[in-house]
Protein backbone atom coordinates (compact mmCIF):
# COMPACT_ATOMS: atom_id res chain seq x y z
CA UNK A 1 0.00 0.00 0.00
CA UNK A 2 1.78 3.08 -1.28
CA UNK A 3 1.98 6.55 0.10
CA UNK A 4 1.65 8.85 -2.89
CA UNK A 5 2.83 12.44 -2.96
CA UNK A 6 0.04 14.16 -4.89
CA UNK A 7 1.59 17.24 -6.56
CA UNK A 8 -1.44 19.25 -5.43
CA UNK A 9 -2.31 17.81 -1.99
CA UNK A 10 0.85 16.17 -0.64
CA UNK A 11 1.28 12.69 0.78
CA UNK A 12 -1.85 10.57 0.92
CA UNK A 13 -2.73 6.91 1.21
CA UNK A 14 -2.99 4.84 -1.96
CA UNK A 15 -6.67 4.13 -1.28
CA UNK A 16 -7.43 7.72 -2.37
CA UNK A 17 -5.91 7.17 -5.83
CA UNK A 18 -6.47 5.20 -9.00
CA UNK A 19 -3.76 4.12 -11.40
CA UNK A 20 -4.46 4.52 -15.13
CA UNK A 21 -1.52 2.79 -16.70
CA UNK A 22 1.35 4.08 -18.76
CA UNK A 23 1.89 7.82 -19.08
CA UNK A 24 3.19 9.92 -21.97
CA UNK A 25 1.15 8.13 -24.62
CA UNK A 26 0.10 11.01 -26.85
CA UNK A 27 -3.14 10.76 -28.76
CA UNK A 28 -2.27 11.06 -32.47
CA UNK A 29 -3.10 14.60 -33.53
CA UNK A 30 -4.32 13.39 -36.93
CA UNK A 31 -6.17 10.13 -36.26
CA UNK A 32 -7.63 10.01 -39.76
CA UNK A 33 -4.20 9.91 -41.32
CA UNK A 34 -2.54 7.25 -39.19
CA UNK A 35 -2.45 3.67 -40.39
CA UNK A 36 -4.39 0.91 -38.69
CA UNK A 37 -1.15 -0.33 -37.23
CA UNK A 38 -0.19 3.05 -35.78
CA UNK A 39 -3.66 3.50 -34.35
CA UNK A 40 -3.51 -0.03 -32.93
CA UNK A 41 -0.21 0.83 -31.30
CA UNK A 42 -1.80 3.85 -29.62
CA UNK A 43 -4.79 1.79 -28.48
CA UNK A 44 -3.29 -1.47 -27.40
CA UNK A 45 0.47 -1.41 -26.95
CA UNK A 46 1.93 -0.62 -23.55
CA UNK A 47 5.33 -1.01 -21.95
CA UNK A 48 5.69 -3.39 -19.05
CA UNK A 49 9.20 -2.66 -17.85
CA UNK A 50 11.07 -4.25 -15.01
CA UNK A 51 12.38 -1.08 -13.46
CA UNK A 52 11.39 2.52 -14.06
CA UNK A 53 7.83 3.02 -15.21
CA UNK A 54 5.95 6.25 -15.89
CA UNK A 55 2.28 6.05 -15.16
CA UNK A 56 -0.82 8.20 -14.80
CA UNK A 57 -2.70 8.42 -11.53
CA UNK A 58 -5.70 10.38 -10.31
CA UNK A 59 -6.40 11.61 -6.84
CA UNK A 60 -10.05 10.53 -7.04
CA UNK A 61 -10.90 10.90 -3.39
CA UNK A 62 -9.04 14.16 -3.08
CA UNK A 63 -8.42 16.94 -5.59
CA UNK A 64 -9.49 14.76 -8.56
CA UNK A 65 -6.42 15.87 -10.47
CA UNK A 66 -4.49 13.72 -12.90
CA UNK A 67 -0.72 13.57 -12.55
CA UNK A 68 2.21 11.39 -13.48
CA UNK A 69 4.19 9.02 -11.31
CA UNK A 70 7.68 7.64 -11.84
CA UNK A 71 7.80 4.28 -10.12
CA UNK A 72 10.33 1.49 -9.89
CA UNK A 73 8.33 -1.66 -10.58
CA UNK A 74 10.93 -3.81 -8.84
CA UNK A 75 11.03 -2.06 -5.47
CA UNK A 76 7.67 -0.32 -5.88
CA UNK A 77 9.35 2.87 -4.75
CA UNK A 78 7.76 5.99 -6.17
CA UNK A 79 10.68 8.10 -7.26
CA UNK A 80 8.83 11.20 -8.38
CA UNK A 81 5.37 12.61 -8.93
CA UNK A 82 4.82 15.49 -11.33
CA UNK A 83 2.02 17.46 -12.90
CA UNK A 84 0.48 16.84 -16.30
CA UNK A 85 2.28 18.85 -18.93
CA UNK A 86 5.61 18.66 -17.13
CA UNK A 87 8.23 16.72 -19.00
CA UNK A 88 9.23 13.19 -18.22
CA UNK A 89 12.03 13.13 -15.61
CA UNK A 90 15.45 11.86 -16.55
CA UNK A 91 16.22 8.29 -15.56
CA UNK A 92 19.61 7.96 -13.93
CA UNK A 93 20.69 4.41 -14.58
Amino acid sequence: MFIIDCPYCGERDQTEFTCHGEAHIARPSNPNEVSDEEWGRYLFFRNNPKGIHFERWTHDHGCRRWFNVMRDTVSDKILKTYKMGESRPEVNE
Binding site: H20, R27, T58, R64, W66
Partner: peptide
Protein backbone atom coordinates in the same frame (compact mmCIF):
# COMPACT_ATOMS: atom_id res chain seq x y z
CA UNK B 1 -17.33 12.58 -15.06
CA UNK B 2 -13.89 10.96 -14.82
CA UNK B 3 -13.79 10.51 -18.60
CA UNK B 4 -14.42 14.22 -19.17
CA UNK B 5 -11.85 15.21 -16.57
CA UNK B 6 -9.30 12.84 -18.04
CA UNK B 7 -9.35 14.44 -21.45
CA UNK B 8 -9.48 17.97 -20.12
CA UNK B 9 -6.56 17.36 -17.77
CA UNK B 10 -4.35 15.10 -19.83
CA UNK B 11 -5.06 15.61 -23.52
CA UNK B 12 -6.58 19.02 -24.20
CA UNK B 13 -5.02 21.14 -21.47
Amino acid sequence: MSWLEEFLQTEWL
